[in-house]
Design a protein around this nucleic acid. Sequence first.
DNA 1: TCCATTTAGTTAACATGTTACCTAAAATCT
DNA 2: AGATTTTAGGTAACATGTTAACTAAATGGA
Lengths: 153, 153
Amino acid sequence: MARTKLQLPSTRRSLPIALMRSREKVMAPIRDMLRASGLTEQQWRVLRILSEFGPQDLTEIARQACLLMPSLSRIIRSLAQNGLVIRASDTKDRRRQTVVISPAGQQHIDDNLVQATQIAANYRNQLGAERYELLLDLLTELEQGPAVPVRRV
Amino acid sequence: MARTKLQLPSTRRSLPIALMRSREKVMAPIRDMLRASGLTEQQWRVLRILSEFGPQDLTEIARQACLLMPSLSRIIRSLAQNGLVIRASDTKDRRRQTVVISPAGQQHIDDNLVQATQIAANYRNQLGAERYELLLDLLTELEQGPAVPVRRV
DNA sequence: TCCATTTAGTTAACATGTTACCTAAAATCT
DNA sequence: AGATTTTAGGTAACATGTTAACTAAATGGA
């Protein structure tokens, strides 16, 4: 099998950096939008997931929002203090707690929905629908691929 | 012009989240590698840029490493305290300071170079060279495209 | 049943992300 | 030159990222 010669890519052509840069570009207008609501992008992600998929426990929210448990633990505490979510302990498994979005939390979603939709459509149009879907497919493939093991040299 | 109907994408098909997930996947083995050196991924990025492109001022490093100035300011302070970089004030512009990688800093690069190269090659092979380059092109296009303005609704 | 293991969630400690504000120096304008 | 604006860099304050260690509860054996 023909193997490409091993060479560390220049930081100018580095995939991790490219992923970061493009994410910054995409998130900038969303953060601008959220600042008016006093929400961080992570809090917004949690609310959107609770709104879209309904009540769930912390572990499931962390998986869907791509957050680590320690971060999520603080975020849920903060959202609960501000009345945007409600915690309920699970009766069957007393370790678990189910989180529900409150009417006030849902109101934040409703308030920003039109603008968020417009922002998402903007960068989709920027690439074109076909290339946008291709990009999403490539990213999904990268994410779902086999874990790259650490090789001790 | 035919416009796609506006619809907020599900969080399962959201570009910002996909960018984050794939970045996590790609960075995981790199973070594993760096832990042995006691470096964070941001410190590693700064050292790599200084090693590849030579001495530069903080603003330029921030641009290349995709870091905000307050973060970089702390990172450089920490790297300088540990002897991995050296600061020198610019003689022509006394606001500016030039940062240089030290021999000890370069040693960290050398120590991790083989393994970092292997990790980069692994995820390149995972997608295949052609799809990997396509992904980089799409990300670059997304990043360099026009800033998406915030529309007040 | 008893014990070891796993899982859900939390907390601590430290680094970075993010916004706002600040200082000094350079650049620009008049 | 003198006033204004811009730029380089720093600090503060708070939120999140990251690893490690911890508690409590569930699970899986022997």
